[in-house]
Design a protein around this nucleic acid. Structure first.
Lengths: 202, 202
DNA sequence: GTCTATAGTACGATAGAC
DNA sequence: GTCTATCGTACTATAGAC
């Protein structure tokens, strides 16, 4: 709610996303999203201009507004689509596993994705606890989805624990250690980080 | 380095901070810092104007620039002074304790401070992984200081583990669970959060 | 559907009175 | 040391050609 969905397209008859064939970085829309995520991760939402995003994506500024309506809803799309990808990957990684094994798989997959898509991970931790913005409702969805995969495993294996808070703690351990690694000591191998996180949470 | 320290005062002969008597929120300088932390926590650095900060602090815009030179160095001060306070509190809380007991004391104290000063905690997680800003060097100090208290305990009690990464994981578990609590289910008692974090990391 | 050009505004920073 | 008033700029968003 709240956002009157001002201009977004997808209402045209012919466009209609090819459904399959969604390669990362293909198409103007995806180029803009990738460029936005990268720039916002480094400088923050407010410090990133639409001019910069358009330039980095190799398109004109007008195209950004045509595709996303305004800057805020472009950012909302970055968040929502990014967390959907993350959740899909985490769910798949823990599929069929339970308890401790499932947690280890989730942590390993989360670290892998932080390494491969550092931009989104940075944007996520930077924005998910911010209150009073336009995209407030999306933030809650993003938060619940990101932590939900961990919470689900906790709820099933340790029903006596608080699933959401324990899930948040596990997610936080992995994400902060992962970003610390990526930003401050990227030369270390993933295995070191994985071991440190598992040592900390077991 | 990098910042030529453009205008900051404290170079005048008479001003010279009273050394003792540093109450939170007393004096123009502290009012500005508190207001800045609160607004930046909610909206982010770029989305917070100096006009807004001045209005919230009850001073004129000119006073902000007189005291801090520019917007970036005001923000840098928020970060550096905030993490110094946090580190002092954490160090004191774990003083004389070792291993598991020390970790529990650190987590409890961190949760307490998140509850009492939620603004700084939000700013910290939002900005500490951001690369390529003006205040890059300060960010590294802030990161190392915040996580260093946990890392020191790990190094002493479990020398076979990677202190920095394990410290980051522990810090991340507490801070993400703490902010999740504060932002999304603030009605829960602290004890629930503390128990969830300790359950997750033991 | 993407471009260029421009309108309108809000912002960071400074100057000068008190 | 804090105020008000103002300057110049950079930004979001729109209009209209292609």
């Amino acid at each position: 709610m709240a956002s009157p969905t001002p201009v977004p397209p997808a209402s045209s008859t012919e466009h209609a996303t090819p459904a399959v064939r969604r390669e990362r970085g293909t198409g103007v829309r995806e180029q803009i999203l990738d460029a936005a995520a990268a720039l916002i991760a480094e400088r923050g939402f407010g410090a990133t201009s639409v001019d910069d995003i358009a330039a980095a994506a190799g398109v004109a500024k007008g195209s950004v507004f045509y595709n996303f309506g305004n800057k805020a809803s472009l950012f909302e799309t970055v968040l929502v689509e990014g967390v959907a990808r993350l959740t899909r990957a985490l769910t798949a990684a823990a599929d069929g596993l339970h308890g401790r094994e499932a947690v280890e798989a989730l942590v390993a997959e989360l670290l892998r994705r932080i390494h491969e898509h550092p931009d989104f991970a940075k944007v996520l931790v930077a924005e998910v606890f911010r209150t009073g913005r336009d995209w407030q409702e999306s933030i809650r969805v993003v938060h619940d989805e990101a932590i939900g995969t961990f919470a689900a495993v906790v709820a099933e294996a340790w029903p006596e624990r608080d699933a959401m808070l324990t899930g948040a703690a596990l997610f936080g351990a992995a994400v902060v250690a992962g970003l610390s690694w990526l930003v401050f000591q990227p030369e270390r191998p993933v295995e070191d980080v994985l071991r440190a996180v598992l040592d900390a949470i077991h």
